[in-house]
Amino acid sequence: MHEYSLACEIFENVMAIAQENNASGVRSITLKIGRLAHINPDQLLFSFETLAEGSIAKDAQVNVEFVPPSIECECGYSGTLDDISDETADTETSLCEYIARMNCPVCGGITKISGGRELIIQTIEVEQ
């Protein structure tokens, strides 16, 4: 798993933006994680906390929002799949379930994945 290196990248980005904005502290960070990305949020947050120790982001609250998969079809259809709300389902089961739902609801064709694989640093709340 590559959560540690992703956490490094997030930390470096957050620190650079905080510095640009003359921040004295980072209050919160909002991340958007695609449901199809291979990221374990707990591992990511743990790595981030470890990295942020002793920095101005040490007390930052990290909020995670999940992005459901979206698809595009050659017939012109584009849309977003409903979130699988079953919290007890393991990652592979929910990935298979999303993939099973990826046929076009209009023409039945095979669609392209257009969203749901991202890791976005959406907002950072800083103290100035």
Binding site: E9, S24, R117, I120, I121
Partner: peptide, 16 residues
């Protein structure tokens, strides 16, 4: 102390 929310929108995978 001033609080300020910065919109970033940086996609780590897009950079790759």
């Amino acid at each position: 102390m001033l609080m300020h929310v910065i919109n970033v929108g940086h996609d780590v995978f897009k950079a790759n």
